[in-house]
């Protein structure tokens, strides 16, 4: 048989033999398989891909992939990935975070990664909770969500990462849902193919600390709009969004940031002439 079909086994080749420690039912499993499907679809050689993450359940992803990976410290994945991509523009660099990792401790780096617009794909598995540390609220958690650390809820307005991404300069903004692995794979393919900083929020239920999120299946819907490059239209769309519209919501055309490297480097002994008396 001559099948170029992106079969499950082509995608499977991007999985490592390490078994995820996630809770059965966790949305992150599907994100993992969407990522492998996307890589397979793009036909990326695994050694040309690096997946960089922070700390959290979601950030465990690199070890489950048969690509290069970096499981760094909490909140700094976009910075580490930026250094890697600038030093190695030939690699496809994907960043994976949770909502705590990406928007709380890593919030400043999120702004600047959007603003810098390096050619990275940033996948945030948003479960509106800190899974790894046992269920504390994150910046995207609903204000009245009761929990042990902030009994009765934080009382704080939830952060809207897509609006922040748009305002900060991300070049591609999309939302997926782990219950829609095919759609999510497609978003990841487009995110990787779009130059610059691509931000994909994937709603990824935490079945252990947010069993209520099993209902997300009924809440999500394809965004009733086409992708736009009009930043004003995108802003209106994202500001009024209820958080459950899926699809590509903004695609811009900003030129990605790259460090310029001279094609004719001189040797260090040449530059030290400037110090000679």
């Amino acid at each position: 048989m001559n099948t170029q079909t992106v079969s499950a086994s082509a995608a499977r080749a991007y999985k490592s033999d390490v078994k995820p420690v996630w809770c059965p039912g966790c949305g992150d499993f599907t994100v993992l398989s969407a990522i492998t499907k996307a890589f397979a679809e793009l036909g990326l050689p695994p050694e040309q891909v690096a997946v960089v993450s922070g700390i959290g359940c979601s950030s465990r992803i690199p070890a489950y992939l048969n690509t290069y990976g970096f499981h760094g410290v909490h909140g700094r994945a976009t910075a580490l990935a930026t250094g890697l991509k600038l030093a190695r523009p030939d690699l496809t660099v994907v960043v994976a975070s949770g909502d705590g990792d990406g928007f709380s401790i890593g919030g400043n780096h999120f702004l600047h990664a959007c603003r810098r617009n390096v050619d990275l794909t940033y996948i945030v598995m948003d479960n509106r909770v800190y899974g790894m540390t046992k269920g504390q609220p994150s910046p995207t958690t609903e204000p009245d969500w009761d929990n042990a650390l902030t009994p009765g809820g934080t009382g704080l307005r939830a952060f809207n990462p897509l609006v922040i991404a748009l305002a900060s300069g991300a070049n591609f903004i999309a939302r997926g849902f782990s219950g829609d692995p095919v759609g999510t794979a497609r978003l990841i393919v487009e995110a990787i193919e779009t130059p610059g900083f691509s931000f994909v929020e994937v709603l990824s239920p935490c079945v252990t600390f947010r069993p209520d999120q099993r209902d997300w299946r009924n809440a999500v819907r394809p965004a009733p709009v086409q992708p736009t490059g009009d930043i004003g239209a995108a802003a209106r769309r994202l500001m009024t969004d209820d958080g459950f519209n899926l699809g590509v919501l903004y695609v811009g055309s900003r030129t990605p940031y790259q460090t310029h490297r001279t094609a004719a480097p001189v040797s260090p002994s040449e530059i030290e002439q400037q110090f000679a008396v």
Binding site: V52, F70, A79, L86, A87, P265
Partner: peptide, 25 residues
Amino acid sequence: KVGGALVQAEDELASINMIIGASYG
């Protein structure tokens, strides 16, 4: 001049992680 590059990071948390990323590469 020697074919390298310098990036101004948003803070030191970023700069240290950027160089870790570059060196890993």
